[in-house]
Design a protein around this nucleic acid. Sequence first.
DNA 1: CCGAATCCTTATTGATACTG
DNA 2: CAGTATCAATAAGGATTCGG
Lengths: 227, 227
Amino acid sequence: MANKSYEQYCPVALTLDAIGDRWTLLIVRELLNGPQRYSDLQTSLPGIPPNLLASRLRDLESDGLVERQTLPPPAARTVFALTADGRDLERVVRSLGRWGLRRLPPPEDDGDVEPGMAVRSGLLTFAQPRLADGGDRTWVVIFGDEPYTLFLESGRVRTQRGRVERADVVARIRPAALLRHRVAGEKGARRSRPPVTFLEGSEEKVAEFERVFDLAAPAPSAVTTPR
Amino acid sequence: MANKSYEQYCPVALTLDAIGDRWTLLIVRELLNGPQRYSDLQTSLPGIPPNLLASRLRDLESDGLVERQTLPPPAARTVFALTADGRDLERVVRSLGRWGLRRLPPPEDDGDVEPGMAVRSGLLTFAQPRLADGGDRTWVVIFGDEPYTLFLESGRVRTQRGRVERADVVARIRPAALLRHRVAGEKGARRSRPPVTFLEGSEEKVAEFERVFDLAAPAPSAVTTPR
DNA sequence: CCGAATCCTTATTGATACTG
DNA sequence: CAGTATCAATAAGGATTCGG
């Protein structure tokens, strides 16, 4: 019930009716990392007024993009999670991220780069699941000291905070260095070899990971990013 | 100078800083069809207050997404055109369109469907240039009585209002029927054979056109849309 | 502490009228 | 035609408070 509809028979306008309000897409962006509590959202969206956050969540809920889940009694708390329709906005968020990446100034240091942002903008944005050898995969990446698990399942990559026991690859990545690589490397030559240290994983699995996330060392000649 | 920045070091937030204001992305959507005059924009964006349109165009211009071009003296008028950066927003607009398409109610009749919308949502959204046989192509599609030309150039599809003399294919498409096909056919079975009549073009060129724009007749078994 | 609701101020939008 | 100017209606921002 926030903004008025554009009242146009057009899918773009319709989408903007749903998620075009200020802050809304950033809330979706956060929820793409998995269900979050109200206060999680408040901290990852610095500056959002609490009434707006509540209002946006209500709008998203009544629009079928977010659902409110109450965790079991012991620690009964509410989390907000995307519905299937909401998760489908991932493409939208990614395309926004990809466009913005080339305008983003390179980060100074790791303090500038939230781990969630590093996963999305440094890895997911560039993921090409088709370049995997086939079958499902589980990868763990550790940003600073925050681990994320990436699942390749039926051709799509999904992330989750935290790490699982067994993974095909475990890698440590320095967030700022990764972002610098992406910002600078969006088009044209790569300056530096990407800042990834592999802690676990066979040689083939590591190579596959580098392929899927476009992290391979710079080729001697000009590289055209396939699309 | 419209909305305040989110002040987040994140490419998504940065993009929304640039194009997150109300009406802005709809202006970009229109300009993706080619340069437009102020009054063209007013008519294709019913309801936009003139001061907002002027203000948004100024913002877009100062952000390097739009440039103001003055046509040669005879009929000296100003048109607004996307810069290269602005055109790169096409992916964003497409992803929004694709998401919204499944929420869009099927059109009643051709009067509901603007030709520009039909080109974007009915054709461009589904374009897979890689399925062409290679080389450049020129296709003319006529919606109702409004012709559009689609150019396949170096792997990308570009549109232009009006038609050119020589084309590889000339097709007449009924806008509402096309949209009904897309809305219903987004996932799962196609109901009807797409409403395209070919006026010119060799058999191979027609087949290629159908392939590139995912307009082939429904397959007997379940169709999985490749991606 | 979590998940908001309330209150108030400021900024943006929308509608309409008007001008070079 | 291509915008500006004006002004009322809304939405956002920020601080504080409140109930579980």
